[in-house]
Simulated assay, not measured.
Amino acid sequence: MAPEDLRIALVSGNYNYVRDGANQALNRLVGFLLRSGCKVRIYSPTVAEPAFPPTGDLVSLPAVAAPGRAEYRVPIGLPARVRRDLEAFDPNIIHIASPDVSAHRAVTWARKRGIPSIASVHTRFETYLAYYHLELFEPAVRATLRRLYRRCDALLVPAESTAAVLRAQRMNRNIAIWSRGVDRAQFNPERRSLEWRRSLGIGDEELVVAFLGRIVMEKGLDVFAAVHDELIARGIAHRVLVIGEGPARPWFEKALPAGLFVGHQEGEDLARALASADVFLNPSITETFGNVTLEAMACAMPVVAAVATGATNLVRDGETGTLAEPGDICALAAAIAAYAADPDLRRRHGEAGLAFAKTQDWDVINGSVLKTYARAIERRERLARIKG
């Protein structure tokens, strides 16, 4: 099937109103699809002042504020005006990017019309519950996800490690890999700036441990802070650099009183801040793909991370960084201590990570999504011919 024949309706819980790795990947995908000749229409909640302009035509979905996280919007369905818009657009494939009410309705809409639906999995939502002491509800959440994903023709996941977890959870048999690329023009070692470090009071020889991302508890902030405390207890001199914003920033600032919080950064400023650190620590277990981890690797920085789906697909233990069991404070601290004691080890692992990052080309990666769309449509058409 030629790209010009594809008409894709993308339904997302967050396309551009709050910036995160998932919606930046979606916007980059839509840009690629449009350049390839596809027709794309996006359905997502909107706000008066979004984090960035949307790529493509965006239709607003009704939504309510997420409980306890008012910056996020939860789509609540497909009202008549949206269904009319869908009918007029006449998609031949539906792509859902978040497991919410609107996604369920979109899959139902597609199934009634014999249109294939694809789900991309960006976050392991069931893992969030532990950070809010709601583990009791994890089986119910997993069952709800399974019901949605098994009604889809295929799943798109960013790494084989995530695919293995979803297969074990019986989410879907047809799982394809949609990895992530990195903008090498933006993220590279040349962005490192000793002058910028000095402006923050960081000595040229001081070890800087970086955090990058939304400052929310599910990013493993408690583990990050505990590793910092363990390094202090071991007498390992270091500075902590926190890049990002989020509702848990007051908690994080209290936990890291000597931390350097530089807030939300974009473009060259973001790349400079990240490249000016020495070690990247990512204790999160909630991501399906560590976008920030790959960006750190593109800056030739060794990564210390938890063994989780967002890291094991990127970090080669003992080659591009160090992996430790989730929540193992001593192991994570020991890895950073090893890099503090051996600059040559930092250099070797950083260079190996950079070499890997150079292989992650966005257009090649997004091309795999086009192929998944085409296969799903062709499979649905073949089944229709057999039944007919």
Rank of each mutant, 00 (worst) to 15 (best):
A2R: 15
L10W: 01
N16C: 14
L29E: 04
L29N: 02
P45A: 08
P54C: 13
G56N: 09
L58N: 01
V64T: 12
A65F: 06
A66T: 03
E71T: 10
R83N: 14
D90T: 14
H104W: 10
H104G: 06
K112G: 12
E126N: 06
E135Y: 09
E138K: 12
E138V: 07
L145P: 00
L148H: 04
R150T: 14
V157C: 04
Q169N: 13
R170F: 14
N174I: 15
R180T: 03
A185I: 07
P189W: 11
R192V: 09
I202P: 01
G203S: 15
D204N: 13
D204W: 10
E206M: 09
V209E: 03
R214M: 04
M217I: 10
M217A: 13
R234G: 10
A237M: 05
R239C: 05
V240P: 00
L241F: 05
W251N: 04
K254M: 10
A258P: 07
D269P: 03
A273I: 02
L274E: 00
F280N: 01
L281M: 11
L281Y: 03
L294G: 00
L294Q: 00
P302V: 07
V303L: 04
A306G: 08
T309A: 09
T312N: 07
D317I: 06
I329W: 03
A334N: 09
A337Q: 08
R347D: 08
R347W: 08
R348N: 09
F356V: 15
Q360M: 14
S368D: 14
V369K: 01
L383A: 13
G388D: 09
